[in-house]
């Protein structure tokens, strides 16, 4: 069975993201990298190779930049990559993106599992995994911190999910869509050979026409984006003759602020 991993390109997490005077989002000299959560999805897909998955395909939706994220996945060991790129997808919301991914998955053969990071670190809302799964009518397992058991021939999967109140163990049938959290594994660094192979890879590009996507339009739009206002005022450093005195002063301040 094939595993499809979905990814996109996002600014490096250390980037200082800002808004330029023309209203566009900038991140200085910081590189665009594979969405950090998706690295865990790639790693988990590769680990499943030992548990009976037979092929891995990474799919990215976006512009030319997205190829770097796809190449990162190839360098880690994914076998093939596909870029889905179309001018009509520039303002895609999750409804559009999930439809594009679902169509791509239908076009690929023998897919047993779709894996994604739990969210993207740009405009991410975290809904894409559930929406892809709901469109396909597959089992949906989000926020997965561990694949407890998977049997590709029997078509069963059991996972541990990280919810607000604790860990849920839940069982489902394949095919499934799985989104992963950071706890699930430790992504490998691409090997030198992997990087060389990825840099030479020819990545096929599918357009909206290839996926029979006509007349889809986003249902939400961003009307404004702004930097957070800088924090006003200075930090008040509390000093005392002793640590106890400084701690006492801090406690008084916090009681005064009515936050304890």
């Amino acid at each position: 069975m094939r595993i499809v991993i979905c990814t996109k390109e996002t600014p490096d997490t250390a980037a200082k993201v800002d808004v330029a005077p023309d209203g566009s989002v900038t991140w200085g000299d910081a590189p665009l990298v594979i969405n950090p959560w998706d690295e865990y999805a790639v790693e988990e897909a590769l680990l499943l190779g030992d548990r009976g998955a037979t092929a891995t395909t990474v799919v990215g939706v976006g512009g030319e930049d997205t190829k770097e994220a796809l190449k990162h996945a190839l360098a880690m060991g994914v076998e093939e990559a596909i870029l889905i790129s179309d001018p009509t997808l520039v303002d895609a919301d999750t409804l559009v993106t999930s439809r594009v991914i679902a169509q791509a998955v239908r076009k690929l053969d023998n897919v047993g599992l779709v894996m994604l990071g739990k969210i993207t670190t740009d405009g991410g809302s975290g809904q894409t995994p559930a929406q892809v799964g709901w469109r396909l009518g597959w089992t949906i397992l989000t926020y997965v911190s561990k694949i407890v058991d998977i049997d590709f021939s029997a078509g069963t999967i059991t996972v541990e999910r990280l919810l607000e109140e604790g860990k849920q163990v839940i069982q489902g049938k394949l095919p499934a869509v799985v989104s992963v959290v950071k706890d699930i594994n430790e992504p490998r660094y691409p090997s030198f050979m992997g990087i060389r192979k990825a840099s030479r890879a020819e990545i096929p590009v599918w357009g909206a026409g290839d996926l029979e996507l006509d007349g889809i339009s986003p249902k939400v739009k961003w009307v404004e984006i702004e930097s957070l206002p800088p924090r006003e005022g200075e930090c008040q450093i509390l000093e005392g003759e002793t640590v106890e005195e400084a701690a006492g002063m801090l406690a008084d301040k916090l009681i005064e602020e009515k936050v304890v």
Binding site: L95, Q127, P129, A130, W134, R161, L163, E164
Partner: peptide, 23 residues
Amino acid sequence: STTRGIDVMGALAVDLEAGTIAD
């Protein structure tokens, strides 16, 4: 905007072709 809320909202958005705003 919780693990459950995001998933339920996502599924609903697909069924109803509805726009969603998270967080």
